[in-house]
Amino acid sequence: MRIFHSLALAVASVLALAGSARAADLRPQSKLLLTGGVSNVEGAGGGGLASWATTTGYGAAQGVGANLHATGAKLDDYELRSWGAAAGLFDRVEVSYARQAFDTGKTGALLGIGKGFTFHQDIWGAKAVLVGDAIYDQDRLLPQIAVGVQHKNNDRDGLVAALGARSDKGTDYYLAATELLLAQSLLINGTVRSTAANQFGLLGFGGPNGGRSTQVEGSVAWLASKRLAFGAEYRSKPDNLAFARENDAVDVFAAYALNKNLSVTAAYVDLGDIATFKNQRGLYLSLQAGF
């Protein structure tokens, strides 16, 4: 996919940034491998579908980290692509941007919106850690807890209105709790999200069946080694539109960190029915490069 080519070009500039961070004594790359999670579908640090309470990148409390990601998911009748950038500051704050493209491909013609019709969405995110240390607080039950916000803006205002969405813009708020059970080599995350987004916002926000609602996300990951984690995720979604049913999403994933500059996530994802097309499943591949 073309998106991965552009990523390769961007990697060089990110590594140059890492050099500047080192020169400024911001102690880059001082976090442990994979402990910032990977770039999720909305550009936040987390798993594939869920946003976690950890901050992205490899900057510890004295440093900054940043990364770029490119993600592609080939579903049965659609293709989802995303690229974005994110930074973690002092292990406390995360800021992120992602641009998603939802390509209807041949299905676009069947839906009457034209072959290859593509929805785009910009997602601006921020996250702040409130309490806890998922890595070091191994003797405490209290997980690491963060609050986050994601402002989403869809570029197909007219069409999402025609589909019944109340808005082409929306803001998600979430509270995430992440706990690393080191003795068991397990990571557990639970997230509660307030959202009106239809299919993550790609089909607009709200609709005849409702507006904002509370949804949940859960992730479990088993750490097989320092570099490799296997996991499964669940994410509930609203069902606001009348013309098509929306289902919850699940995935199983493997994340591999080659080093602190490059990681690959491969997943099998099931997003359920999308715009009347049933059981949208497929392979999800994401590359993340940063420091």
Binding site: Y136, D139, A183, Q184
Partner: peptide, 17 residues
């Protein structure tokens, strides 16, 4: 083995405080 390594690290981690 990695699992045994993590058993030790889980014991040492809280000493960071």
């Amino acid at each position: 083995p990695f699992g045994a390594q993590n058993r030790l690290l889980a014991k040492l981690a809280p000493m960071k405080r």
